[in-house]
Every structure is written in C-alpha cells, then in structure tokens.
Design a protein around this nucleic acid. Structure first.
Length: 484
RNA sequence: CGGGGCGUAGCGCAGUCUGGUUAGCGCACAGCGUUCGGGACGCUGGGGUCAGGGGUUCGAAUCCCCUCGCCCCGACCA
C-alpha cells in the first residue's frame, strides 16, 4: 500500500499507541468484546471462526501423530491439586474455587481447572497397568480458568480456550522425543499456517512450567518488538506419576512409574495473529487461517442488480468450487468504498471488485491486502489465478514477518550493548549465558528482559563464548526479550 | 496487588471547577429519496436509571463517602 494512503480511519495508529491500537482493532473487527466479568471476554463469531480454523489445523496434526481426543472434567478436588507440591505452588495464586453447590457448602472445595495434569494423572493411574497400555496419547480441547490480575483480550484472559495434550510413556527418552516432536509440530503449524516465524528452545528454570522437568516453547516477536509465548511442550518426567501413582509393569516384569508429557496452544494465538500481521488499517490474516479468504464487492452503480450482481454471484460459486472461503458483500446500504475499508480492517487477504466496466471487459479488479496492489484478472482465469495469489500472500506474509524478526534480533558481546539495545530498539537479543539464575535475575531487574528460550544443540552452531552478564565461559546460547 | 488516569446514548466527546429550563454535539442506528470504481448526501426519527450505591441540599451529571469497571506504568503469569 502507498505509505501516504490510509483508507481505514478512526482507529488509533499502531505506531502511536500499540496497545490501544490492539484493543480497538479487536473490537472494531468484531473478534471479541468485553464481558461483564472482569478479565473475561466474548469471542464473537468472526473471532471464533479464526479459532475454529486453528482448531481444525492443529487437530488434524495431533491426530496424524497418533493422539486421540477425550474430555476431562472442569472441576478438580483440592486434594488432587495438592498432590504435586511445586505444581500447586505455581498455580495457587490463580486458581478459582467452587465452594458451594446450590445452598450447601462443599466439604472439599473444587478447583476450576487452571490446567488438567491433576485430574488426568488420577485417571491415568486407573487406566495404565502394563507397558502394553503405553504410550497413552490423549489430547483435549477445553477451557481453563486462571485468576489473572492483568488481563488483555486473547493475550491473557481469566478464561481461555486451548488444547492440552497429556501423554504417558515407558521411558524418559520416549517422553523427551514426544515433547520435542510436539514442539516442532507447533513450530511447523504456526509458521506455515499462521505465517508467524518463531524461535524455539528450552525454558530456563524460572520460566518453566510448575512441576515439569523441562519446558520447551515457541516464541514469536510481535511487531512492537515484544516477545509472545505461542505454545509450550513439557517433559513432566516422573514427578506427576509418582504422586498420582501411575505405574506399569515393564517389559521385564518390573513395576515402574510412567514418564509423562503435556503441551498446549491457546486462543492467545489469535492475539499473536493480530499483533504480528496487523497494520494501521487493521487486521491482516494469512489466507490459510482467514475466515474469509476472498471478499467480492460489486460496484453498485446504475442497474447493477441486473448487470453486475449475477456475474458476481457466478464468480462466488466458481471460487467456492475451488474450496475457497468466499463472501459476496451485496449489501445495499453501504457504498463500495466503505466496504473496501471494512473488509480491509477485518483482514480479508484478497478483494475482488466487479463493476460495469469490468462486465464489459469480462474481467475483475483484484486487490491484495498484504501489498495493496491492484491487478486486472479475466473472469475466465479466476479459478486458477485467485488460489495462486492466495498462496503468494501466505508466503509473502511469512517472509515479511521473518524479515522483521531478523532485523530486530541483535547479537551482543557485552552487557553495555545489551542494555543499549533493550533501551532503544527492543526485539530479541541473542547472547551467551552461563546458566546461573543469578545472572538471569539481575538482567531482568535492570532491563526487564527475560530469557525467552535456550537454544537447543541442533539449532546452534558449536561455539564457545562468555556470559553476557558475568563473562564466565559457556556454550549456552539464549534469546532474551521483553515478554507479554 | 501498588502508582496514575478515566467512567455522560452503541462509539467519540462537551457540560462537572462555580448545583438550578426538557442533558447536548459528531459518528453510528431506523424510514424515505437521490447516490455508488477508496469510509456519499438530504429530510425525518428513535435511543440516556449521567458506571452503581449511599449522603449533603428546596434542587445533584455537577459537592462528599463507598463500591465496581476500563486504560497506562510497575510486581506475578499461557
């Protein structure tokens, strides 16, 4: 789009006030609205359609890798939650409790699940007897509640939707393979479907999941330079199996505790889509995830209902036949210009304009949301051309985001450079770290930056360096960033 | 949870300091007509427990107290 043109008006500019832009665009594009209870939101049909796309694309990947869906209950008895001490301590401040059933006070209060390890562990103990029952690979799509103090639509809400996978295995190695396989599944999904480039790796001790042996995560850089955790995959080791007594008889007839994993992505991904791709005109959805991929706007001039509309309807059918999600906007109460802006704001990747002039020439005008470029396309070639352009948009959006991420990732040698960059430019800082939590804490105190991920061996070139804070020699490379 | 800001029609605001006609404006909404290739225009109309509760007063959107919500900045977190 021409830099000086901005057709969508009445939204705060992204460059002026990022967080205001974020909440305004979510409401104006009708993704979500605030609910009467603090920290809770309504996901409106357009926003929920995005979630349904995410669900479908994640679900098919989870099933392809051997997992089945199930559903576990919302309420968890307090005593179950208490079994794993670190887990309880980690979640205690944000658990909501049910204390009454009707008018009667409950003997034991019930937690509204903040996550389901406790209830699922309890059930696994009943179901798993032998190595022949393993691996047990279950996923659930559910809502969870965490009593957060600071909330923002999609990024952190009191209730959110997610999928949580819970698996049990015979050995540490098998659990570790599962954990890392899911991590790369998430990465592939987010990059190919959401067009959001991510960094992936291990979480540091202070950032890991309460009760896990190790936590792995994918993180992405939002267009304000801050980092957002997009998905996590935990190797739970035997910490939960020991307290929930999930034992199996192994291949040598010895009784053993299972090795577990858990992993999830949430409605937060929708917030990431907004913050990664959105611009001053509003949302910008990658075609693979967009609820509407193509909007057809008839130019409603003269006797358009007799001339333009029938052709527009034919085009709609033709594109639908190609498996595309198409919307024909034939509302009479809005002008074409108004509709252009409206659908741009709602992030539709491609617009097809058709008016009297086009009818004459048997063509349409096609406009890309990612670049703003207009192009004349003959009506007869639309079924070939439109899917082709959508693929290009998908690719281009990922490349634009990747370019931004790379341009805002800085490698630093010493702490002075580190502070200078965090003060001015934000983004990621790639640096060596000695693995001492003290250095991590100090850096956080002084710069607000935390370790987003620790690079895995396979992702880093073998190298030695010095901890960016204390200068101790180390081989560990990490990404720092300010996080949401 | 601390510090700051803000709550008046769906949205954005004026009115509050200095209490006093029927609470006003723009956008949005409804009806009719003219328009329509980048947020059209005219006419007519509907919509308000002034965030909620309590108090002061002859009289409260306006003054006082309490509660709630939203936004921003910190501490805690998917």
């Amino acid at each position: 789009m021409n830099k000086n043109e901005r057709f969508v008006k009445k939204i705060t500019l992204k460059s002026v006030d990022f967080s205001r832009w974020y909440v305004e665009i979510i409401q104006k594009a009708e993704l979500a609205d605030y609910a009467p209870v603090k920290g809770m939101m309504v996901i409106r049909p357009y926003g929920y359609a995005v979630w349904e796309r995410i669900q479908r694309l994640v679900d098919e990947r989870i099933k392809k890798t051997g997992h089945s869906n199930a559903y576990f209950p919302l309420l968890i008895p307090e005593s179950f939650l208490q079994k794993e001490a670190e887990h309880l301590e980690g979640f205690a401040p944000e658990v909501a409790w049910v204390t009454y059933g009707g008018k009667e006070e409950l003997e034991e209060r019930l937690a509204i699940r903040p996550t389901s390890e406790a209830i699922i562990g309890t059930m696994y103990a009943k179901w798993i007897k032998s190595w022949r029952d393993l691996p047990l690979l279950i996923n659930q799509w559910a809502n969870v509640v965490r009593w957060e103090k600071v909330t923002r639509p999609f990024l952190r809400t009191t209730e959110f939707l997610w999928q949580e996978g819970h698996t049990a295995h015979e050995s540490f190695e098998e659990a570790q393979d599962e954990t890392l396989m899911i991590l790369s599944l998430y990465k592939e999904f987010v990059e190919n479907e959401l067009a959001i480039p991510v960094i992936s790796g291990k979480k540091s001790g202070r950032e890991k999941f309460a009760g896990a042996l190790e936590t792995f995560a994918i993180e992405a850089m939002m267009s304000d330079g801050k980092s957002l955790q997009m998905g996590t995959s935990h190797n739970l080791g035997q910490q939960f199996s020991k307290v929930f007594n999930i034992r199996f008889e192994d291949r040598n007839q010895k009784l053993q505790y299972v090795w577990q994993t858990s992993w999830g992505v949430s409605t937060r991904l929708i917030g990431a889509l907004v913050m990664t791709h959105g611009d001053d005109s509003g949302l910008k959805f990658p075609p693979n995830i967009a609820p509407v991929q193509v909007v057809i706007v008839p130019i409603s001039a003269g006797n358009w209902k007799e001339t333009v509309l029938p052709v527009a309807r034919d085009i709609e059918k033709k594109l639908e036949k190609e498996g595309l999600r198409v919307k024909l906007d034939e509302r009479e109460e809005f002008t074409p210009g108004w509709k252009f802006s409206e659908w741009e704001m709602r992030g539709v990747p491609l617009r097809v304009e058709i008016g009297p002039k086009d009818i004459e020439k048997k063509q349409v005008v096609v406009v890309r949301r990612d670049t703003g470029k207009k192009e004349n396309v003959t009506q007869s070639s639309l079924n070939i051309k439109v899917p082709e352009i959508l693929r290009e948009i998908q690719k281009n959006m990922f490349e634009m985001a990747l370019k931004f991420q790379q341009e805002n990732t800085h490698e630093v040698k010493n702490y002075e450079e580190f502070k200078a960059i965090m003060d001015s430019k934000k983004g990621f800082i790639k640096a060596f770290w000695c693995e001492d939590q003290v250095c991590e804490e100090k850096i956080k105190e002084e710069t607000m930056a935390t370790i987003r991920v620790i690079l895995l061996d396979q992702d880093k070139k073998a190298a030695r360096g010095k901890c960016v804070f204390c200068q101790k020699p180390t081989e560990t490379v990490v990404y720092f960033g300010r996080a949401y």
